[in-house]
Design a protein around this nucleic acid. Structure first.
Lengths: 199, 199
DNA sequence: GTCTATAATGAGATAGAC
DNA sequence: GTCTATCTCATTATAGAC
């Protein structure tokens, strides 16, 4: 194998691990499965990462970045009304889940694992804190853009949004009922919009 | 060890497995951990159960029974108004989660595992179908008892209720913020009650 | 029916040759 | 820096004595 830097090797292993996690689940995310996916030798893994746990920490931490969730802001920009914005944001989120179910499931598995692992528990909390922050920013942005206001603290409503998206995700993952999930997304949008009032 | 029937041995192993799952998580739910908890020999496990996977199936199936969720119906009976009933049901649910967080987390871990395991995937779907049924029954019961009606099919609203309880659970498990979870439970109750109208 | 002992497998991690 | 070979441990499952 060519001589590549530790940093790049970590990136390759990280990307391979994310693919394995999405495809086969956390229980199949062994160091051997990861190096097979990255087409490396087992020893190369431990040259780049001290342990499997360290790489798992990296993946959880990457979720904290939350670029993907923040990407939903783009959807808001295109809407003509706040009602349409919220509905489309949730519909788009559902599309994201359906496009890559394994990824979402892998994230859940990883969060559950992190909550059980003392060394990673803090990361799991930060992950949800980040979710809440992103959701709150979206809500604030929406109110500003359409000159409206929320009848409750956006921090609280953000928690509602995250709970609804989590619930929506688990619901669809469990039975893959597209029509039911779309109706649920509509009800979820309505639940949020109830709290939007004139400025 | 005394000679006990296979049926009873299965019950003892089952109960021990549930305790280990709640306390240490799914990844620690090895046959060895189970027999240690049940104070049996390893071979006794395989005398009662053909495999570890078979016992996991039993646990998932037991959730489908859903006695605990159905138990929330009792809360509804004591309320004076439908608003109070929904609020108290969600608050009681949250209390249940807080009283035994490991149990809830174990259930999530098990559901995720079932969804990844072809032999158990059907059970996971049935588990959520059962959740939806129980929630729909509660909603119907509530409307009848207070002579009101729901503005959407109770099947759809039931899905909303389950999504909200799942989201509420994950939210509290992630950061254990009691005050925030109570505010979320109140918002969740409101989201459901929005759909209640006069008969 | 119940046990001890062991097989068979797969895991994370490392030593040491190159 | 990278590899092969190996160590050590934990796992599920079973064979066979009692």
């Amino acid at each position: 194998m060519a001589r590549i830097s530790v940093a790049q090797r970590r990136e390759l292993l990280f990307a391979a691990a994310v693919r394995v996690l999405a495809r086969d689940g956390l229980s199949a995310l062994s160091t051997r499965a990861i190096v097979a996916e990255a087409e490396m030798s087992l020893a190369s893994f431990h040259y780049a990462y001290a342990s499997r746990e360290e790489l798992l920490g990296d993946i959880v931490a990457s979720v904290v970045g939350g670029e993907r969730e923040a990407g939903l802001a783009g959807v808001l920009g295109e809407a003509a009304t706040p009602e349409e914005a919220v509905r489309r944001a949730l519909a788009t989120y559902l599309d994201l889940v359906r496009a890559d179910p394994g990824r979402e499931q892998g994230m859940f598995e990883l969060t559950q694992h992190a909550l059980r692992t003392p060394a990673l528990a803090r990361l799991a909390s930060e992950q949800y804190q980040r979710y809440h922050e992103v959701a709150a920013e979206l809500l604030d942005h929406l109110a500003t853009r359409f000159d409206r206001r929320w009848d409750s603290p956006t921090a609280d409503l953000a928690r509602l949004v995250v709970a609804l998206t989590d619930g929506l995700t688990l619901s669809w993952l469990a039975d893959r009922d597209d029509a039911a999930a779309e109706r649920l997304a509509a009800l979820a949008a309505e639940a949020v919009l109830t709290h939007l009032e004139e400025a």
